[in-house]
Simulated assay, not measured.
Amino acid sequence: MLTKSIPHTFIRNGYYYFSRRVPADLQGHYSYHRIVQGLRTTSPQKAKVQASITAAKLEAYWSQMRLAKSDVIGLSLVRDSSSSSQEVASNQPQTNCPSLLDALEVYLEQKGKGRPKTFRVAAERSCNYLIGLSGNKPLSGYTRQDALQFRDWLIVRGLTGSSITRNFSYLKAVINFALSEYALDIRNPFVGVYHD
């Protein structure tokens, strides 16, 4: 039975589980009508954060699936992007570039020592929000468009200005630290994004 205090969760043997019904219009993509995943925690606070992140990832993924299925005006006018995307890929050496999760791991390893748990949770939450929205790309793969989309998504979620600033601060810190550690000459697209 789902818990009322934490949306999309239930408890089994003292542990929290995430549970979400697949929307009717997307059930053709799934082999089962419900998604269930263990959150590996008995703590209500941790379960609430993890369930919120997982739900946000799912919503973002389902939005992408719906967009992929929809008819887009002017699609017949779009040039074949496979050749141009290959050119862009060849111009951006991403072979040795760490992903955002790699950057987060290095950041928490180095900067998280002696810090309270809230430091780790906040950094993970901000990065997981972005991964749920844009995917776990190499750091060189994130663009200004990703940053603007992330800002707009946080606003739509109803976050206050200070919460949006905090999420951007953690993302910038994680990315900047990794760029410094790996000596990468990449501009951080999350720097200087305006929000009211």
Score class of each variant (00 low, 15 high):
66 R>V: 04
66 R>I: 01
66 R>C: 01
66 R>K: 02
66 R>H: 00
66 R>F: 01
67 L>M: 07
67 L>N: 07
67 L>S: 05
67 L>I: 04
67 L>D: 07
67 L>R: 05
67 L>T: 05
68 A>I: 02
68 A>W: 00
68 A>D: 02
68 A>H: 01
68 A>K: 00
69 K>G: 02
69 K>N: 08
70 S>M: 11
70 S>F: 05
70 S>P: 04
71 D>C: 10
71 D>P: 05
71 D>S: 13
71 D>Y: 12
72 V>I: 15
72 V>C: 06
73 I>W: 11
73 I>N: 12
73 I>S: 12
73 I>H: 13
73 I>R: 14
74 G>P: 01
74 G>Q: 04
75 L>K: 08
75 L>Y: 08
76 S>P: 03
76 S>E: 15
76 S>N: 12
76 S>Y: 10
76 S>K: 11
76 S>G: 08
77 L>Y: 08
77 L>H: 10
77 L>V: 06
77 L>W: 04
77 L>P: 04
78 V>Q: 09
79 R>W: 08
80 D>S: 07
80 D>K: 06
80 D>Q: 09
80 D>A: 06
81 S>E: 14
81 S>Q: 15
81 S>R: 12
82 S>P: 01
82 S>F: 07
82 S>D: 07
82 S>V: 06
82 S>Q: 09
82 S>A: 10
83 S>Q: 13
84 S>C: 08
84 S>R: 11
84 S>G: 05
84 S>F: 13
84 S>A: 13
84 S>Q: 10
85 S>A: 15
85 S>N: 15
85 S>P: 02
86 Q>I: 09
86 Q>H: 10
86 Q>K: 12
86 Q>V: 09
86 Q>F: 09
87 E>I: 11
87 E>K: 13
87 E>D: 14
87 E>V: 12
87 E>W: 11
87 E>Y: 08
88 V>F: 03
88 V>H: 05
88 V>P: 01
88 V>Q: 05
88 V>M: 05
89 A>Q: 09
89 A>P: 02
89 A>K: 12
90 S>I: 08
90 S>W: 07
90 S>A: 13
90 S>P: 04
90 S>C: 06
91 N>A: 12
91 N>E: 10
91 N>S: 11
91 N>Q: 14
91 N>G: 07
91 N>P: 03
91 N>H: 13
92 Q>T: 13
92 Q>P: 01
92 Q>C: 13
92 Q>F: 14
93 P>M: 10
93 P>R: 06
93 P>S: 13
93 P>E: 09
94 Q>E: 08
94 Q>F: 08
94 Q>N: 13
94 Q>S: 12
94 Q>L: 10
94 Q>A: 06
94 Q>C: 05
94 Q>M: 11
95 T>Y: 10
95 T>E: 14
95 T>F: 10
95 T>R: 14
95 T>H: 14
95 T>Q: 14
95 T>L: 12
97 C>M: 05
97 C>T: 09
98 P>Q: 02
98 P>N: 03
99 S>E: 02
99 S>I: 04
99 S>Y: 05
100 L>Q: 02
100 L>E: 00
100 L>S: 00
100 L>N: 02
101 L>K: 03
101 L>H: 04
101 L>Y: 00
101 L>D: 03
102 D>A: 04
102 D>E: 10
102 D>Y: 02
103 A>W: 00
104 L>Q: 02
104 L>G: 00
104 L>F: 01
104 L>T: 03
104 L>P: 01
105 E>S: 07
